[in-house]
Simulated assay, not measured.
Amino acid sequence: MSDAIANQAPQQIKRPGKLAAALQKPGFMCGLIIIGISILLASAPSVFAPYDPNFINYTAVRQAPSWQHPFGTDLLGRDTFSRVIWAYSVNMQMAFLATIFALLIGVVVGALVGYYRGIADMIFGRVVDAVITFPFLVLVIAVVAVLGPGLVNMYIAITLVGWVYYARLMRAEVISQMGNDYASAGIVMGYSDRRIIFRHLLPNAITPIIVYWMTDMALAILLGSSLGYLGLGAQPPQAEWGVLIAEGRNFITTAWWLSLMPGIAIVLTGLGFSLIGDGLADLLRPRG
């Protein structure tokens, strides 16, 4: 009996796939839950907000949090909880629109520069040097100051500056992928440059870009809220977290809920994107 057991072939140990392993990580799951709830609130704020975010009630000015108003009321008696909920629509929009165009432009430019190199690489290097010399926020504020305050101009400003960082990362990844055998084989087989770049190099180089995009969306919310706080982003009476914090900055000791509640929303949403980015880094990382 013992010999028969000893002669049996050892069973192969099944290891969980990358997706299953990622879903087992508490951080990644927390990030998915936070962003899932954020998208739900942004998609249907009227379902979850108990009041009109712009309804003025002078009889309920700066009331502390209560059962009737869980986040208190603001300087005009508007329900802070409803305004924070409605702000999800604007801030989640910021996270996507402020980064998607920079992502697309940067990926295409970085892939072309990394593949062709030469004079295009030299020009791109000078552009990168000029952009990274100045702090990102300072450049965005300068562009918004020229174009004028507002969400659309903010998206344009972030795109004009932010694409450089995506292109820089994509260029480095494409150059790294060019050293692999499949890229050399495509050139030897006579494939067109477009096929090599977009069908072979780009899919293999996109992983760090996706991870960076998740982190960048968290930064876009922080940046958009900062510009709203400074009066360069969303404009009152529109409900936006930065605008809400700015409205309560002079009452931080007497009406602390005015700035605290939208600040918590910013932190939680940014944390959600960061946790998803960390999880995607493990999920998309190639096996050794």
Results as ranks from 00 to 15, higher is better:
Val90Leu: 12
Gly263Leu: 09
Asp129Ile: 03
Val146Thr: 15
Glu173Leu: 09
Ile105Asp: 07
Ser192His: 09
Ile123Leu: 12
Val131Pro: 02
Leu75Asp: 11
Trp257Arg: 04
Ile13Leu: 12
Trp213Cys: 10
Gln24Phe: 02
Arg126Glu: 07
Leu280Gln: 10
Met170Ile: 06
Gln238Val: 15
Ala172Ser: 15
Thr207Lys: 03
Ala21Leu: 05
Glu173Gln: 15
Lys25Leu: 03
Ile158Val: 14
Ser46Leu: 14
Pro286Leu: 10
Ser2Arg: 11
Asp278Arg: 11
Trp256Ala: 10
Arg171Trp: 08
Ser46Cys: 06
Ile35Pro: 03
Gly242Glu: 07
Arg194Lys: 14
Gln238His: 14
Gly288Pro: 13
Leu169Cys: 07
Pro237Met: 09
Leu275Gly: 05
Ser46Tyr: 14
Leu137Gln: 09
Pro203His: 11
Ile221Ser: 03
Ile156Gly: 02
Ala167Lys: 01
Asn91Phe: 04
Met170Phe: 01
Thr254Gly: 07
Ala22Tyr: 01
Leu76Asn: 12
Tyr51Gln: 15
Gly190Gln: 10
Met170Lys: 01
Gly263Phe: 07
Val146Trp: 06
Asn57Met: 14
Leu222Asn: 07
Pro286Ser: 11
Pro16Thr: 12
Leu260Ala: 13
Gln11His: 07
Thr133His: 06
Val109Lys: 00
Arg195Asn: 11
Leu151Lys: 04
Trp256Asn: 04
Arg285Pro: 02
Leu227Pro: 02
Pro149Met: 12
Val164Gly: 08
Ala4Lys: 08
